[in-house]
Design a protein around this nucleic acid. Structure first.
Length: 420
DNA sequence: TCTGGGGTCCTAGGACCC
DNA sequence: TCTGGGGTCCTAGGACCC
C-alpha cells in the first residue's frame, strides 16, 4: 500500500503561513521573472484566475480584485518543503520524496498496527502542527491509485482530506467520477485522443484492453491501465536515482543585445549548474548552451541555437565548466537579436572525476580542485555573503525581475518574523 | 514592454556492425 | 524478375510530471 501526501496549493500556502492576514483571501504566486501565474489559493481560483496566465495581462484586473501577488521565493518553499518531509520521515519508515510538495509513503508495515485512515489523519494533524501547511492524503495499493485517492481527498470536502482505497467496492464507485485527464500520466494530448474513442473517465480507462492501449498509445499508458486495476507497476523507490541532466536556465529581466552581457549570464548559469552537480556528487563530460529570442514576439524572427562541448576528463570544477560553456556560446552568438533567455545543461555523468587517465592525454586534473570548490560552496552556504567568478560581472542588468518577493522568513536572520 | 524552470521516459529513424 | 537477418548505439522529438 502507498500513501501519497501532498501540500494543498503549496507556494501560496507557504506565503500565507507567514501572512495570516491573507488567509481566506485570493493569493497568487508568479513564476521567475514575474512571468506567469504558477500557484493560486482557492479564493484566487474562484475568481477565474488560471495557472499559466501571463502576469502582465491580468495585472490590472488582479489589482482591482485585490489579489495579493508574490514573486517566487524558492528559498522559502524549499525550506518549508524540507520541514514537511522531515515530519513525514518521523512518522513512517519509507518516504520517497517525489517533488517539492509531495511524497509517497510505503504504508504496508503500518497497516498492521493501525487503520490506514487513522494514520492518514495523524499525518495531516502533525504536518499542520509543525509547519502550518495543510496536506491531502490518498492511500491505495498502487501509486496511480494513491494519486487518484489524493485527488478525491481534495475534491470532496467531506472526506476530511484523507481517502483510503483498499476496499474494491469503494474504488469502483470512485473511478467513474474521475475524469480521465485527472489520471496520473494522462495529459492533454492523450486525454483528447482517449475521449475521441469514448474513454472519458478513469473506470473506462481501467476497463480498456491493455493490448489495444499498448498498440494505439504506448507501454506507458498500458502501465497506467494496469495500475488503475490495482496491479502495481511502479515500485517504491528506496533511493533517489542519480540525475541524468542538470539544467540552469533563466529568462532575463531585460532583453540582452550585447555579447558581454550574454557572456556574464552564461557564466552565472554555468556556475549554478556546476554547484548543483557537486551537490549531486557527480562529474560531467558534456556541457551544452542555448540562447533564444522570444517565441512570442510576432515581428521578430525566432533564433534559438544550441551548441555543446566535451571535457576530456569528467569534472565538476566550475572553471572547466565555464570554459566549455563560453566556447559553446561563441559558436552560436549572433549580433542583432534581442535575446530573452539562456540555459546551460550538463550531461554524461560519472560518479568519479578521473576514473582512468587517457594514455595519450596531455590534460591533467587541476591541483586542489576539490578543496577550492568545497570552499566556495561552503562560503556561499554560510550565510556570510557570496563569492563568484568574475565572468558573471557585478552589475547584472540582465538579472530576473522579482518585484514582489516576500521576506526569507526562515532562511535569513534579518528577515525572521517578530512576535510582539 | 511584459508569457517559468527543471526533470523523466519512450519511440522512431539513421548509422553502423557482423 | 530477383537484393537477408539480426543486432547496437545515438539523437531528436514528443509525451508526461511537478
Amino acid at each position: 500500500m502507498f500513501a501519497l501526501v501532498d501540500v494543498n496549493n503549496f507556494y501560496t500556502s507557504c506565503e500565507t503561513v507567514f501572512r495570516p492576514d491573507l488567509r481566506g483571501k485570493p493569493v497568487v504566486v508568479v513564476s521567475n521573472n514575474d512571468g506567469c501565474v504558477i500557484s493560486l489559493s482557492a479564493e484566487a481560483k474562484a475568481l477565474g484566475i488560471q495557472r499559466g496566465m501571463p502576469y502582465f495581462k491580468i495585472k490590472a484586473d488582479m489589482k482591482r480584485q485585490q489579489v495579493a501577488v508574490f514573486s517566487s521565493n524558492y528559498a522559502l518553499y524549499a525550506d518549508l518543503s524540507h520541514r514537511v518531509m522531515m515530519t513525514l520521515a518521523e512518522m513512517a519508515p519509507a518516504v520517497e520524496v517525489y517533488s517539492i510538495d509531495e511524497a509517497f509513503i510505503n504504508v504496508a508495515s503500518i497497516s498492521r498496527c493501525l487503520s490506514l485512515d487513522t494514520f492518514g489523519h495523524q499525518l495531516r494533524d502533525r504536518v499542520l502542527k509543525h509547519t502550518g501547511l495543510t496536506v491531502g492524503v490518498g492511500i491505495a495499493p498502487t501509486k496511480t491509485l494513491a494519486k487518484l485517492a489524493n485527488f478525491a481527498a481534495k475534491r470532496w470536502r467531506k472526506t476530511g482530506g484523507v481517502v483510503e482505497l483498499s476496499d474494491n467496492e469503494r474504488l469502483r464507485k470512485l473511478l467513474p467520477l474521475v475524469p480521465v485527464h485527472e489520471v496520473w500520466g494522462v495529459g492533454r494530448r492523450i486525454s483528447k485522443k482517449l475521449e475521441l474513442s469514448g474513454i472519458e473517465n478513469a473506470l473506462q480507462l481501467a476497463d480498456s484492453s491493455t493490448w489495444l492501449i499498448r498498440k494505439r498509445f504506448s507501454v506507458v499508458l498500458e502501465r497506467t491501465v494496469r495500475e488503475l486495476r490495482g496491479e502495481a507497476c511502479l515500485a517504491a523507490e528506496e533511493f533517489a536515482p542519480t540525475k541524468q541532466h542538470i539544467l540552469c536556465s533563466r529568462s532575463f529581466g531585460q532583453r540582452i543585445t550585447a555579447y558581454e552581457e550574454m557572456h556574464q549570464a552564461v557564466c552565472a548559469y554555468a556556475e549554478r549548474a556546476a554547484e548543483k552537480l557537486r551537490a549531486e556528487k557527480q562529474f560531467c563530460c558534456v556541457i551544452s548552451v542555448y540562447i533564444r529570442t522570444s517565441p512570442h514576439a510576432d515581428n521578430e524572427t525566432f533564433y534559438g541555437p544550441q551548441a555543446s562541448g566535451r571535457l576530456a576528463i569528467p569534472s565538476n570544477d566550475t572553471r572547466d565548466i565555464i570554459r566549455v560553456a563560453i566556447n559553446a556560446l561563441e559558436q552560436i552568438w549572433k549580433d542583432g537579436h534581442r535575446y530573452i533567455k539562456a540555459g546551460v545543461m550538463l550531461s554524461d555523468f560519472f560518479s568519479q572525476g578521473v576514473a582512468q587517465l587517457n594514455l595519450f592525454d596531455e590534460y591533467q586534473p587541476r591541483p586542489n580542485s576539490n578543496e577550492l570548490m568545497q570552499t566556495i560552496d561552503r562560503l556561499n552556504h554560510s550565510g556570510r555573503g557570496t563569492v563568484w567568478f568574475a565572468g558573471q560581472g557585478i552589475q547584472k542588468s540582465w538579472a530576473m525581475k522579482r518585484e514582489m518577493l516576500s521576506p526569507g522568513y526562515t532562511t535569513r536572520y534579518s528577515d525572521l518574523p517578530i512576535v510582539r
